[in-house]
Nucleic acid binder design. Sequence first.
DNA 1: CATAAAACAGACCGGTTGTCCTGTTTTGTC
DNA 2: GACAAAACAGGACAACCGGTCTGTTTTATG
Lengths: 217, 217
Amino acid sequence: MPKKRINDPEGMRRRVLDVAEGSFQARGYHASSLGDLMAAAGVTGGALHHHFPTKKALALAVIEERVAAAVQATWIDPVLAAPSAREGVRAVFEAVAAELEQQGYVRGCPLNNLAHELSLADDEFRVALARIFAGWRQAIADKMRADQMDGGSTDPDRFAALAIAAYSGAMSMAKTSQDAGVLRECLRGLEGLQPSPPPVGTIGKRRRRVLRRREVR
Amino acid sequence: MPKKRINDPEGMRRRVLDVAEGSFQARGYHASSLGDLMAAAGVTGGALHHHFPTKKALALAVIEERVAAAVQATWIDPVLAAPSAREGVRAVFEAVAAELEQQGYVRGCPLNNLAHELSLADDEFRVALARIFAGWRQAIADKMRADQMDGGSTDPDRFAALAIAAYSGAMSMAKTSQDAGVLRECLRGLEGLQPSPPPVGTIGKRRRRVLRRREVR
DNA sequence: CATAAAACAGACCGGTTGTCCTGTTTTGTC
DNA sequence: GACAAAACAGGACAACCGGTCTGTTTTATG
């Protein structure tokens, strides 16, 4: 009696992307062989080739579907949900730092990892990665523009660029030293450019505003 | 008559390192084959193997001799020669941005490029790269501590970490977008954290100070 | 149920990679 | 000049990689 087989194209595609995403982040694109991915995902060559004709196509799918989603989930969504762009950036920095310290190792930013390895290798890779960077920047800048507070003392585009650059660079150092501490140091340095006096606590944003009004009058 | 041969071990070693440094930066470590390097350097397999037994040994030499020297030449030396750490950082940012815009393409920071690809691959690589990052940071922090001006308003270690992170991240974005403009944007954002009020232009810092004094009085 | 397309299995192949190995030549040393 | 070590030449090789190919099974469609 021949063993049954159930076709699950979406599930198989997802499994391959899961494994590829993890391997690309941990070992990089070139150091990840399709053989290893096939073994890790429990997928045969025929199935892999059916969903992703070439290794490049697989990487492109990882970038556009997984890396972009990761940036959205860990950065854009939290920032948009925060009371302000500055608050959002601070929250993400601390959340990532806490997560890294808890898990004990640093694998780096998925976007930056692939960007460094693939930007110069292939223009199609480069454009796909640049699009994610651009969306990331614009989301932070738009959020800052939407904040009616923080009266235009700092340019939103510059702030967004600096926040992302500081995060990317800090992650690079954290990955190399295997220590997330530099993330917190960069955040502290970043907080130094706030136009308002140094914050005392996190809560009470409304309260502070009331106090300030009383002081003025 | 057999052709003559002149042994030049140092020159040959230097040529190999030259080619390897360039290829590692342009294509990365894994994408650079020893065959290509041999052909580009005009070196036979025997000679290459004599000076560098393995590819890893070659990369380690590139890191410790070339990448470290590049960081020293483009960052540490200029910063130490500048009137202040802040001035030095600003000068390096602008110098690199100008150089990139002139040459028309962006290959990224040699240190960060290799750090991303090799930090997780091999611990020996990671430690060598981390040492360069640490020296970079300490040089800027020490310089800032040596400045008697800038009265302790910002922590030197934080400033150094932020400056390097912003530069590394900005180079990452510049490499991905093939546009050095983000370097200048990050520099502008970085200048916002200066204890002095926000600058209006780039030139005439002394002139503005005079004008401001007149306005005040 | 017929049938075509999609989904999957598994072997195969040409090319490349890094390394090793055996010689030959040059160079330093006594 | 004898001689050992360093410097270099060049081929060989096993492992591996990515892609292709053929064949089989499942699924959708009518």
